[in-house]
Write a protein that binds this DNA or RNA. Structure first.
Lengths: 336, 336
DNA sequence: TTGAAAGCGCTAACAT
DNA sequence: ATGTTAGCGCTTTCAA
């Protein structure tokens, strides 16, 4: 079995006390250089590593942060995770990634899991199904540091990092309008998600600016964020069965964009002859489509980095933090 | 600050000893039903959760497993991770995911990280750059349970789960041959990776069976597994500059397939007019291509599940395990 | 049926 | 400069 060596092992091997060993290895000033040398060389030789569990118990922190995202297969999230890791690893923190698969139940379980697992803080992007955040409010009130990114909630006062969803949606919609499309539909995730609300706003503003009336029937929601193919297909079918079929569609998310393309393929709807499409997506594979898709990109990597920096600041603060910030990052329109 | 309640808190609130509380909450037979009731109700009320770090220290296991993959953005790996989580969560284990981004250095750091973090076992898919596995052999000799999946090594005797790479490659290549292609190139990851070797074998066997001579010049390696665009582009360019240009290409991996399509797009190489392509991939987005790609799928989810079951069996075994198994799962050819 | 005490590996206050 | 001791939260042996 796997039995790593401990301070005690070194102590009895070398005839010192465990505290001397501990101090020598952490290079404190009280230990004589010769003793340090002996101890460090021996520790090196047997490849000693301090037991982080014992350290955590002692120091009452685990040097790990929990991440809650919808799914890692989504390029927006995988890029954000890379940003999170780039900061966390540098600062000596572990990253524990969990996926909700857009399920509220799963989100609750994961968060409970992480909290009981004594992570020092949480980086959260809410699931599509989540409208009630009381499971998070409890933890927040108890003082567990948390930072929201991408899909945020107003119910909890803490740091937040989002993209400029309204502007991104505005540009995407305006782009379609400039291309001459008149009947622009909008396919989005669940209605209560912050990103859905903001992107819908941008869509409406673009229509308004160009004097195109907003039609409720042109907006289709996927309460499960496109996790079920049928949900997306039904939404598209409803749009295509309208008396005045849309000639273009603005899709509000990464997963949804891909699902939408699959539906088009399966229903034999041609792009751009039958319908034009543009949407939020960080997937480079969309470039491969022919014709390739114009899309709105979020600075996912950077969002992950900033959220992590904010979280670590709260975690490592000596005093309770009351001053929180909502950082809004710019999106970019990739015209193709 | 976040200060959860402890056994001691309950003990002093209720006037029992901590051991009685501990026993009552874990429902041991010695405690009287009334006492249990009082204690459990109070624990419920204050929402008590045992500190898993203290439990780990005591029980000398962390109830967590570490996963090492190239990158979560790869659909093969994200599906395998879903399989891993499906088993691990059921059995009460946490999953800590780390990415190597195909870098040997990163792999060493991550594994060291996980081991020192006291995971109870490791699920490993080697990075493209890894040829020396001594960093793993050390841990293996010390008794840390590990199971390899997908990219395995012969250097370490333990459980392994792989797809039938040779058969898959054979079928993919044979499919191209049956379609009438004669000059079939092979784009693959680094030469020493188990999957590269097995897929190359399948490719060669299919050629041999159809009496097509094997040409060394038609095989191109990407030592960094396609993590750098330039690597892939150079490989493709070399192929396309050959006197006898290939008319088809069999690509050995998920990431590589997508990179390859990007290169084709950028170099304005048309599919299938200029070249036909088929390859290993679990990305459903490839279905969206027009014409869509014939591909070999691995049962990624199931591979993750089986690897996890194997690992937990070793972890939870009371006696050292000497009897190991290499499970080979079937691939499937998706003709489109 | 319950409690006291030891110990998991580590750190740090308090000796010496 | 080094050692002794207590304690982080929990489980478990031993004692009552």
């Amino acid at each position: 079995m796997f039995v790593p060596s401990t301070l005690k092992d070194i102590a009895s091997a070398l005839g010192y006390s465990t505290s001397t060993i501990s101090r020598a290895l952490r290079d404190t000033y009280e230990i004589s250089p010769e003793t340090k040398k002996i101890i460090r060389e021996y520790a090196q030789k047997i490849n000693y590593r301090p037991n982080p569990i014992a350290q955590s118990l002692k120091e009452r922190r685990s040097k790990s942060i929990g991440v809650i995202v919808a799914e890692v297969a989504n390029h927006y999230f995988s890029q954000a995770i890379n940003g999170i890791e780039s900061i966390a690893y540098d600062r000596g923190y572990h990253v524990i990634i969990t996926q909700t698969h857009e399920s509220y139940e799963r989100e609750k379980i994961n968060i409970q899991h992480l909290a009981s697992r004594s992570v020092d803080g949480l980086l959260i992007s809410l699931s599509a199904e989540t409208s009630d955040t009381s499971h998070l409010q409890d933890l927040h009130q108890k003082g567990l540091p948390m930072v929201f990114f991408d899909r945020v909630t107003e119910d909890i006062i803490t740091h937040k990092v989002i993209a400029d969803n309204e502007k991104g949606a505005f540009e995407a919609t305006a782009h379609l309008i400039q291309k001459g499309y008149k009947r622009i539909a909008h396919l989005t995730s669940s209605a209560h998600l912050s990103i859905s609300i903001e992107r819908l706003d941008g869509y409406k503003k673009a229509l308004a600016k160009h004097h195109i009336p907003f039609e409720e029937a042109y907006v289709k929601y996927c309460p499960h964020g496109g996790m079920f193919y049928q949900e997306t297909e039904n939404a598209i079918k409803e749009l295509m069965n309208l008396r005045e079929k849309p000639d273009a569609i603005f899709v509000a998310g990464d997963r949804l964009s891909i699902d939408c393309l699959m539906v088009f393929k399966n229903l034999n709807i041609k792009i751009p002859e039958d319908i034009a499409i543009t949407g939020f997506s960080n997937s480079d594979v969309l470039d491969l489509m022919n014709p390739s898709l114009t899309s709105i990109r979020q600075p996912a990597f950077e969002m992950g980095q900033i959220a992590t920096q904010m979280l670590l600041k709260v975690i490592e603060s000596k005093y309770p933090v009351y001053d929180f910030e909502k950082k809004i990052l710019d999106t970019s329109l990739f015209v193709r």
